[in-house]
Nucleic acid binder design. Structure first.
Lengths: 227, 227
DNA sequence: GCGTCAAGGATTATCGATAATCTTCATCCG
DNA sequence: CGGATGAAGATTATCGATAATCCTTGACGC
């Protein structure tokens, strides 16, 4: 999954197999809420609905499960992952740790070429002005993913992806009522700090951002290892 | 993909599908060089050799490709990818960060009831005495997973699982020649530190352990966020 | 009442075969 | 001689059907 591409409609220059299209279909269905968290999805159901066989659906399921969007139990069933408040809060220190690593690794790269991250920020701000919270959630996830990706470390990206930030962001954006414009602008300091190449400041800002992200997550961020 | 087990038939507490066994077979073949980097691997060849159908082999291919060990081109073919120490080392700071979080969260729980982690350590030491490096790699992964699990944070476990530690561990254990008994004993301080409930010491020890894990990974561990 | 156990239903896991796609190479036209 | 073209071979991608596994439900003995 390292590269490839997803929903947000970028590169299909690579492969365009059925499995890929099924994956994107499911991704869209989840992102726009037609497949709600917790709802079961059956391989043969999706296959029938899309007019394919079970095989490509199965591949799509596996990939989305690795992404933390689906939860599969062998021989039992698969459902859209549902995250409760508890898990939402649990994810904060994990996400903070990963994004702190991302900040350290990304700073030099972003400083060298901030264009991609800036573009993601612009897009986030643009979407925020539309007032669609679901769309905002997706753009926000996209921004953070671009940030993590800019660390240029596949392992890091994979671990971060596995958290299922998409789902979490969707669920939080739909349950709180923070103004979108303000939320979007809150991401600007991250870009600025990274672009300046100041690692320590970047890490601090990212940590503050993530910690504040989930409502009710007042628990102190995990303190970490001395250098 | 998360856990599963491998050939040597140890822990099959989770799933033991054919795809998993095929994956481990390929992993071992790659690690010990019988499948050299660059050599082509055909789905139906492997299937025939292992007496399965194409389907589980295909799944194994996909999984290994996601971790960068195979390189597949649609409709064309798949080959073993050259994976440098550098790429293996890439995971170290990520793993270190996650296990540092794990140490912090786990310490109180392990201090309250160290039995499960101690059992995992005993098992690790027992397997080490057998001299089977593959079995040891699995037991080692199992120990670390039990450690991460003892933090009782699903998101953390999920992110850690996504790193593919099993794959890395098998690769490193089969390519170096460190004595198993010593390696196993190296895990004892982790248990002791956690059981004592001393968070700072636990974090420090875990970090040192992980950093030393991958040969040649002398790069300094990522420094992290102030508390 | 309560635990054990045996169908039955639901879902995934695997199979064997066929289709689709890409690459190569020989051939033909200019 | 060079470039297009198309057929053949190799490999994956997809299909439809069957097998294996897990969970539930309800009967049965105690």
């Amino acid at each position: 999954m390292s590269t490839a591409e997803t929903s947000t409609g970028s590169t299909l220059l690579e492969r365009a197999t059925l499995g890929t299209r099924v994956r994107d279909y499911l991704l869209v269905e989840i992102a726009n809420g037609r497949l709600a968290p917790g709802s079961p999805v059956r391989e043969l159901d999706i296959a029938k609905r899309l007019g394919t066989s079970q095989t490509p659906v199965r591949e799509a399921f596996r990939e989305l499960a690795a992404f933390g969007l689906l939860e599969a139990r062998s021989h039992v069933g698969t459902r859209v992952r549902e995250v409760g408040e508890r898990e939402l809060a649990e994810a904060v220190p994990v996400r903070a740790a990963l994004e702190a690593v991302a900040a350290q690794l990304a700073a030099p790269h972003v400083a060298a070429d901030p264009s991609r991250l800036e573009a993601a920020l612009d897009e986030l701000i643009r979407v925020a002005s539309l007032g669609d919270r679901l769309a905002y959630a997706n753009a926000c996830t996209q921004f953070h993913r671009e940030f993590v990706r800019s660390a240029q470390n596949d392992s890091l990206l994979r671990a971060w992806n596995a958290l299922g930030i998409e789902i979490m962001t969707i669920m939080t954006m739909l349950t709180n009522s923070e103004p979108l414009d303000a939320a979007a602008q809150g991401h600007r300091p991250i870009v600025e700090a990274l672009a300046s190449g100041d690692v320590d400041r970047s890490v601090a800002i990212v940590n503050a951002h993530v910690a504040a992200y989930i409502p009710g997550a007042t628990q102190p961020p995990v303190r970490s290892v001395p250098g």
